[in-house]
Structure formats: C-alpha cells, structure tokens
C-alpha cells in the first residue's frame, strides 16, 4: 500500500508540474476608498478581468433601502454618501461569487451630516484651539487635508488589498500540513481501534 500511495503522489506531482505556475485567484474582489466627498472604488476578478457595467449594492445603516449603483466599463464606480456612517459595498455575481468592502464612517468627510444615532453622542466639530489663527477656514482646511491624505493613502490601500488576495506559498504549505496532520490523527484513531 505505501508503494501505491507513493505512485499516486508521483503521478499528481508530475501532472501539476505540467501546468504553468501562475497562481491566480478565482473570485470577485471589491475595493473602495474616500476621495473628497465621494466614495470611489472598483471591482475586479483577481488575475484578470474587470467588473464591468455591473451592479453594486450600497448599504448604509441610516438608509431605509439599499441603493444599487453600476460600475463603469473599466470596473470603477463612484458613490456620493449623504450621511457620515459606515457604508457597505456588495457585489454578488450571478455565477455565485460575492465580495464586500466596508468604508468606515470615520474616513468620510466631517462636513457630512452624521448618522442620527451618532449625532447625539458626538458634539459638532470644533476648530482646534491653536496659538496662531488657522490659515484657512477649518472646514475647508479639513477637506484639503482629507483630500491630500487620501491621494497618498489610496494607492497604499489598493496595494494592501491586492497583497491580501495573493495566494501565498506558506499558506499552501500550511494547508498541506493541516491535511497531513488531520489524516494522521485519523490514522492514529483508526489504528488504535484496530489494535483494541
């Protein structure tokens, strides 16, 4: 029997080696970030393909109903939030894939009206007490800072999203380790039963 198992292993390794080693994912992904007063993002199929001209559902806790927006031909979409609350973007493709992305309320511009529940809790934004007077009106300045920070951070967020969906070798090896371990445990239990 061990000989037979060894042969199966060799057969399968040979079969796998015949394939190109490009490890790509097989699902739909979604990315969104705040840019100015809008939430912009894009949907894509990792390893190729854009989520073109397809629906994306937006859930905001304060809205009674979910809104449906459509992505453009390059897979990108843009949504203008009306409240400062968490927004959940969901893609559900008809072939059974699904992706979601949450944009936290904190990353939305402070100029937006807060969600009703939060309105009571948080006091209206106040200008920080500085020794020298601020160079611009606080709200305007805040918006400028937000936009500048977003411009630098968004590419980084995109990189992180891309990095996270990569299939990594140590995960594959870890998975094989789990399989060996679990079946080893099974063999151990069955072996004891056989003896006893």
């Amino acid at each position: 029997m061990p000989n037979q198992t060894k042969r199966i292993v060799l057969t399968i390794i040979a079969a796998l080696l015949l394939l190109p080693s490009s490890v790509l994912a097989h699902k739909v992904k979604l990315f969104a970030a705040v840019k100015g007063e809008k939430i912009e993002g894009f949907g894509y199929y990792p390893g190729g393909g854009k989520y073109m001209s397809s629906p994306i559902t937006v859930f905001a806790p304060t809205d009674q109903q979910a809104t449906t927006i459509h992505s453009k031909e390059d897979g990108s979409f843009s949504y203008t939030p009306s409240k400062r609350c968490d927004h959940l973007f969901v893609i559900a493709t008809q072939d059974g894939h699904r992706a979601e992305f949450r944009v936290a309320a904190a990353s939305l511009p402070a100029t937006l009206p807060a969600a009703e529940a939060a309105q009571i809790a948080s006091p209206p934004p106040q200008a920080p007490q500085l020794n020298s007077p601020p160079p611009a009106a606080p709200a305007e300045l805040q918006q400028m800072i937000d936009q500048a920070v977003a411009r630098h951070i968004v590419p980084l967020q995109e990189d992180i999203a891309r990095y996270e969906q990569r299939v990594r070798l140590h995960d594959i090896i870890g998975g094989i380790g789990y399989i060996v371990g679990l079946f080893g445990l099974g063999a151990f239990v069955l072996g004891r039963k056989k003896q006893g």
Binding site: T5, I8, V9, I12, L16, L19, P20, S21, S22, V23, L24, A25, H26, G47, V167, I172, G175, I176, I179, V180, L182, F183, G184
Partner: peptide, 15 residues
Amino acid sequence: AVLSASFFVASLIHV
C-alpha cells in the same frame, strides 16, 4: 490524504 492535498493545491493553480 494525498488526494485531499492534491485537490487543495490543484484548484489553487489557475491557468
């Protein structure tokens, strides 16, 4: 175990 591992790896390699 071997076939479980093969399935696990094979369906991760996308061509």
